[in-house]
């Protein structure tokens, strides 16, 4: 069942993105920035974790999860170190996406040429 909900929830989040593209004429950079901020806000309200429990990868694969994880990292550290933890903990949980992107970006640049 989680496979079904992953498909539906993930697809729905993408449809929201498509509406931002086509109806509000936002470019991808702005749209994705809005998504990340939205993910952070949803987690701030405590809504993102239940969504992941419900939809699995449908909620953890869209870029909104990036905002969710950033808040998670900050909150984890904040619980131990207070306000200072908010600053130092932001990348605690979310390192996978960014480090994978950097690593595979550089490897990609080494082995591929743009196709044009």
């Amino acid at each position: 069942m989680i496979f079904f909900w992953a498909f539906v929830v993930g697809g729905t989040i993408c449809v929201i993105g498509q509406i931002l593209f086509d109806v509000f004429k936002l470019n991808p950079g702005v749209t994705l920035t809005i998504f990340v901020i939205a993910g952070a806000i949803l987690d701030g309200l405590g809504l993102y974790d239940p969504l992941i429990d419900f939809a699995g990868a449908g909620a953890s694969v869209p870029i909104t999860n990036f905002g969710n994880q950033l808040v998670h990292g900050a909150m984890q550290e904040a619980e131990q170190h207070g306000i200072i933890g908010v600053v130092t903990g932001i990348f605690e949980v979310t390192s996978a996406g960014i480090s994978a992107a950097i690593i595979f970006g550089v490897i990609g640049a080494i082995i591929f040429k743009p196709k044009g």
């Binding site: 449809v15 991808p28 869209p62 870029i63 990036f66 990609g108």
Partner: peptide
């Protein structure tokens, strides 16, 4: 469109395409 831009693969694509 957004179907491949919003998932984290779209984030990866934006980084990797710029690098290449």
């Amino acid at each position: 469109g957004a179907g491949s831009a919003v998932p984290v693969t779209g984030f990866g694509n934006s980084v990797i395409s710029a690098a290449i």
